[in-house]
Each structure stands twice: as C-alpha cells, then as structure tokens.
C-alpha cells in the first residue's frame, strides 16, 4: 500500500514536471514549443462580467485552430454565431430564423481583432504584433496591452494563461475597463487531431 502511494506520488511529480515545462518560460521557448502544434481543438465557456449585471452572461462554443493561421470560433449557446478565418480573410455569420446569415458590411470589431490575434498566439507569436505589446508574467501568463490608445477604448488589456500543454491556452481574459471583463476558459483541448475538410471556410 505504502509502495503504491509512493509510486503514485513519484509519477505525479514526473507528470507535473513535464507539464510545467510545457510551453517554456521565455518567449523563445514558447515559440519553439508551439512549433510542433499543427491543430488545436477545444470547447470554451465565456463569462461576461459587468458591474451592472445581476448575473454574468455565460456563452459556450467551440474553437479550432490550424497552423499557420486558420481559425473557427463558434458560439453554440445561447446565441449562435460564427467567425471563420482562413487565408487572410475573416467572415462572420449569425444564425437567424433557422439559417446561417453572413453579416455583410461587417466592420472590424474588437473581438474579431482578438480572434485574429489568437491564431498568432497559438503559434507562439506573442511579440510579433502591431496591435499589442506583450509581457511575459509568472505562472505562464502573458499580458497584452494595446499599442494604439484608440483600440484601448475597446479593450484595456488582455491576459492569456497558457496551459501546461504546449499549444494550448487555459484562458483568455479581456479587460474592458473597471466595469467589465470577459473570461474565456478552454475545455477538453485536443492537440494535432485532424480537422475536417472545409472547417475554416464552410458554415456547418
């Protein structure tokens, strides 16, 4: 019994050491760790906190990334909407009256900018960025602050918490000021699992 417990403890230590190594602790190590990641798929739970709300707004969805820059960001509940990013083009759809409708004339919105950034973050490119200044913090956290004060009116800062698993993020928190923040937690991540054809170009 004692031997079994000791074995488990040693195993846990080894596993946690490997997981902590994960992304690495410098920007260079993070980029190298992300280099082996071709695809990441996960669910997410998004909580919107505002001072005015009696209860946070909770949304759920699915996230899929494929290197070098394809992304599918889909809200499934309570309001269906979809952002598709592929070959430098981003399209946005909403589900209305039983069908997907592409939002025409859709201006560049703050969240679209963030989603586009995520593709870069997944590749470990935190510092090569025109919009944000990245700062590496302890405990696998990265703080991004907008370079352009005009964008800062939408998002004051973003904090990313990297998962111990390379290529996987634990959470993204968007701070919009003292009254409001949005936290997105990723669930059940799968790294390098094949992605269906057309996943980044077709509405399904």
């Amino acid at each position: 019994m004692v031997r079994k417990t000791r074995k488990t403890a040693v195993l846990l230590l080894v596993v946690s050491a490997v997981l902590t190594l994960g992304w690495g602790s410098t920007e260079e190590e993070i980029r190298e760790a992300a280099a082996g990641v071709d695809t990441v798929q996960a669910g997410f739970v998004q909580e919107k906190h505002m001072k005015m709300l009696a209860r946070p707004l909770v949304s759920r969805g699915l996230f899929c990334y494929e290197a070098p820059g394809s992304l599918r960001w889909e809200y499934t509940d309570p309001v269906k909407s979809l952002l598709l990013m592929h070959a430098g083009r981003t399209r946005r759809f909403t589900f209305q009256d039983g069908k997907w409708v592409e939002e025409a004339g859709f201006d560049l919105q703050a969240m679209q900018v963030v989603v586009e950034q995520i593709a870069g973050w997944m590749a470990g490119r935190f510092d090569e960025n025109d919009l944000f200044t990245a700062r590496l913090l302890p405990e696998r956290r990265i703080r991004l602050t907008p370079k352009n004060p005009a964008f800062g009116r939408y998002i004051e800062r973003i904090e990313l918490t990297l998962s111990p698993v390379p290529g996987v993020m634990e959470s993204v928190t968007l701070h919009e000021g003292e009254n409001s923040f949005t936290r997105i937690r990723f669930t059940s991540p799968a790294v390098n699992r094949p992605v269906p054809d057309g996943w980044f170009t077709e509405v399904r």
Binding site: M50, M52, Y75, S81, Q109, Q112, V115, E176, S180
Partner: peptide
C-alpha cells in the same frame, strides 16, 4: 442597459 457584440465586447452602456 448595454449593447454588445455577439462576442461580448461592450459598445454602449
């Protein structure tokens, strides 16, 4: 009241 994008970014409060 608040208006926000479907992704949750607040535009008006």
């Amino acid at each position: 009241t608040a208006l926000m994008t479907t992704e949750g970014v607040v535009l008006f409060e």
